[in-house]
Design a protein around this nucleic acid. Structure first.
Length: 207
DNA sequence: CAGTGCCT
DNA sequence: ACGA
């Protein structure tokens, strides 16, 4: 495992190619099982009801969801099936143990599927009740242009071209940084059957 | 403002 | 930069 910490803000950690190809394939198989149980759906913005460009699902005790009427929140059931979210795959729990430095396990794993046109605007992950634990993020499939700023929206930003198997963690002073995905580079990975990218985000929600 | 749509 |  390699960690590139240099030139990154305190609390930000980047592990390029954390997962090798066989591990990525195993992770994709596990995520396919999650999606078979908890289908991808289109999340909607609070108040406007505007569709986001990514499709989402979750695994874990809690999942991050958003809709027009109730906005951003965590809940224990899939918004369309009403069923509890499936368990977080073991590989991801092991990743959390290796990288988070946090004793308690993650409660939520948000699964975001980006097709080639999908984007995610700059935002903070701030719907958790406790920010002591880091957010741990895994990239699978096509490369993307990932942008990170600071804790204020107006802070300057830097961009990274993330590849399949890369892991990013934001903790400490960087737990609440703004971050987003500006573009997907279709055809840059053979991991998935279809062009696009999967992002997995592990979070601790409650203290 | 987890958005869009300009602009350079 | 916007207007929700």
């Amino acid at each position: 495992m390699t960690e590139t910490g240099h030139d990154l803000a305190p609390g930000l950690r980047y592990f390029p190619d954390y997962f090798d190809r066989p591990a990525q394939e195993a992770l994709v198989a596990a995520i396919r099982q999650v999606v078979a149980d908890a289908p991808l759906y289109v999340p909607r913005m609070p108040k406007t009801g505007k569709a986001m460009s990514v499709r989402m699902t979750n695994c874990g005790a809690l999942g991050w969801v958003t809709d027009k009427d109730n906005g951003y929140r965590y809940q224990s059931t899939h918004p369309e099936t009403g069923r509890p979210w499936p368990a977080i795959p073991e590989t991801l729990l092991a990743l959390w143990d290796a990288v988070s430095g946090f004793a308690k396990p993650p409660e939520a794993c948000l699964v975001n599927f980006y097709d080639p046109e999908a984007k995610m605007g700059l935002h903070q992950d701030r719907d958790e009740t406790d920010f002591a634990a880091p957010v741990v993020s895994v990239s699978l499939g096509d490369q993307c242009l990932f942008r990170i700023g600071g804790t204020s929206r107006s802070d300057p930003t830097r961009s990274f071209r993330l590849s399949s198997g890369d892991v990013f963690a934001f903790g400490g002073e960087s737990r609440l940084i703004f971050h987003g995905v500006d573009r997907i580079y279709p055809g840059t990975s053979t991991l998935l059957r279809n062009p696009g990218r999967i992002n997995l985000t592990l979070r601790r929600v409650n203290p």
